[in-house]
Amino acid sequence: MALLEVDEVFVRFGGVVAVNGASFDVDEGKIVGLMGPNGAGKTTLFNVITGLQEPTSGRVRFNGKDISKVAPRQRALGGIGRTFQRLEVFGSLSVGDNIRVAAEMRGISRPERVRDELLDRVGLRAFADVTADSVPTGIARLTELARALACDPRLLLLDEPSSGLSEVETDDFARLIRSLADEGKSILIVEHDVELVLGLCSTIHVLDFGSIISSGTPAEVQADQRVQDAYLGADTEAAEALEEVGA
């Protein structure tokens, strides 16, 4: 049984259909990619899964239970963590305190130790005492990741986590994600860096105009004509990247 099941979700904003009957699963301990051109509805789907956006219709199941009507906070307590594409770091706290406060909010014992471990693990040691509002975007994204990890989620949703990272940092990041999956965490990742997604994920779902147009292993998705059409129609840069990587 899949850990997360998204079932026929629709989201309408007035006349705009942001998500149009999307369905997909995320299995336990797997790294799953969610790809799609700009405006495809990826972030909206994340908001639906975490409860920040009420879907017009459809359901979300987590660990076998229907959580469609559950409040965001309860979903987080149930083991769903996330980062945000448009940053939501605690800007007036230092990077270290961002992590510590997450542990404190959850009443985890020894929050300082959680902070120190995660600072090292995510590679933020040098920024520990810098205010989160004044660090570069990439660092702020890692801060959000570390903050989410402080609550030890079973499922982690990452919305474009690598944008703003240098190449070296991206490699470190990929290693970190793999090690998290090895520990049994499930990871759903939205990423524009095609190379990174193809290298990292065991399954990829491609979203276009709010619907899943293709699902499968990286190789299957790359070979899918519909995927290439979608990208050629919307986002030439990503399409080129897709070809370069070997479609």
Partner: peptide
């Protein structure tokens, strides 16, 4: 710290289960 975090982002607090 919790107070400042609350002020800075209520959405983030909710997704941390707070």
């Amino acid at each position: 710290r919790i107070l400042l975090a609350t002020r800075d982002s209520q959405a983030a607090c909710a997704t941390l289960g707070f």
